[in-house]
Design a protein around this nucleic acid. Structure first.
Lengths: 297, 297
DNA sequence: GTGAAAGCGCTAACAT
DNA sequence: ATGTTAGCGCTTTCAC
């Protein structure tokens, strides 16, 4: 008789690996902002499924929820675990459970301290370096960096900016400005800085929201972008293509991140070693209109 | 001794329900367009996890892949299944397996024919009716509807438009225009229709991309929106808030759809009955600038 | 080589 | 009430 399906549960019970990988998703709770998940899952799924694994997905917002979901995943005898988080709660008990869970771990995005895991991410620093270098190449010598709070992903971006600036000779003037990372914060900075006596000629923004806010401020003050001031964002949010002028920004492939995460984890499970190392995929600069390079011909 | 975790596999093997629900995701393969998944999963997860279920996620693009994933899910002894698809392949063998799978089924989005399942979706028709009624209330009497191909979700939207038009007295003039659903298609229609001798005064578009393309065409021909022509979209894509003028459009909550799907499935699993019925969540009209009602005061 | 038996961790149906 | 046992579907071991 054909069409027989072995019972995966029984198989796993009998000592075989479960061929299930857990994805623990720390929702940021910040609403619809955290999209890109479908790309991530598509990339992840592609490698997992061809490797014969199934994905168990669980998530939550609070440390308590996450701990519960983690236990459920573990009780499902997952062979490995992926942590996906824009901001992973720094809960000590949670982190301990994770470390004790004792299955290979890979973390994407925010990385909790003190657990043995591989890290996969897009290369935030490289992306911001690309963006900054673009501005520098266009001749800008007075740069403002609109920073955003939180370790991930902003620390890497900030460093990328800094290394680009430091690597430039002669050294350009640069100023770092702290913001809350939101559009309105970008607007406020623009309002203040654009009417300064000797304003920056280029703004590099830690994310697209800041850039969009800044552009709004420029518009409302009648300063022309990109003619008078250049701006770059980071993230290539869907809105970036529709702003006026269209925003030059950095795009990372979440799909690639998902695929990397899958590969690293599958490999670790296969060898029985804990996953380790850092795997960074290179983002690219998508050049639109907000820096003016499209006017060059 | 504390901290003991029962083995979920063994428990399920011993005859108990697996407390695992499968999510079979038919990726459209159309790239990053199909986002909103994170909202859906957040809504779904919220109800599943509090009900004590874990999610097994698997997906693919082709019918073959989907059939494979489905078998894996089934072999995991899932208690119920959710089908998530913008366009579910009409593969006969796949559909048969689904029907034979004999666990409660709920489908979100495109619904294959001939399987006993509950359907959950946003109320496409109601949304488009809302949008059309808005235009009608603003006094428009010559409407063009930019249709898009494919059964789901466009059939419902079209019907919503039609019932709004039919319900209006005196009946407005209306014309249905077939497009391919893309921005460029919207642009072409705009190019053609806007220079007609007696053009429509309002355009209702099956999705935001069409609306954006249409607005581009209007811009390039110097026709003013919303002063000369009004336009509404559907979907509230992230770009909609950033077009100039900002696009009035219909927004449905994917999060609510996910939550509904979870509720319906959990209920069906609990009662042991196959899931059935249709569950529609009401979208709302987000009024921005492209229809002109914001000018009214 | 093929075939029988033990056991994975748990639950259900028994027996005491 | 508590304790014991069979068995879920598979894999692995050990005997033939």
């Amino acid at each position: 008789m054909l069409g027989y399906q072995p019972n995966a549960l029984a198989r796993s019970l009998a000592g075989r690996p479960s061929h299930t990988l857990g994805l623990l998703w720390a929702e940021s709770g910040s609403g619809p902002g955290d999209d890109g998940l479908s790309s991530f899952l598509a990339g992840l799924g592609e490698v997992l499924y061809t490797a014969g694994y199934t994905l168990a997905l669980a998530g939550g917002v609070s440390p308590n929820e996450l701990a519960l979901r983690l236990d459920e995943l573990l009780s499902r005898q997952v062979d490995g675990l992926i942590l996906l988080a824009a901001a992973f709660p720094d809960d000590e008990r949670l982190i301990r459970r994770l470390a004790e869970g004792a299955c290979p771990l890979v973390v994407c995005g925010a990385a909790p301290e003190g657990i043995p895991a591989a890290r996969v991410d897009i290369n935030q620093a490289e992306g911001m370096q690309l963006a900054t270098a673009h501005l520098l190449a266009l001749g800008h010598r007075r740069l403002a960096y609109l920073d955003a709070p939180g370790e991930w992903p902003y620390r890497g971006r900030r460093e990328g900016f800094l290394t680009a600036v430091r690597g430039s000779n002669p050294a350009p003037e640069s100023i770092l400005i702290a913001t809350n990372g939101g559009e309105s914060s970008g607007y406020q900075v623009g309002e203040r800085l654009l009417r300064a006596s000797h304003p920056p000629t280029a703004f590099v923004c830690a994310n697209d929201a800041l850039a969009i806010g800044l552009m709004r401020a420029a518009w409302s003050q009648g300063v022309a972008i990109p003619e008078e001031v250049a701006v770059v964002g980071f993230g290539d949010s869907p809105a970036a293509a529709y702003t006026v002028p269209a925003l030059t920004t950095v795009r990372g492939s979440l799909r690639a991140v998902g695929a990397d995460a899958g590969r690293v984890l599958v490999e670790a499970v296969a060898t029985g070693e804990p996953a380790k190392g850092t795997y960074l995929t290179s983002p690219k600069l998508v050049i639109r209109e907000s820096c003016g390079s499209h006017l060059w011909l």
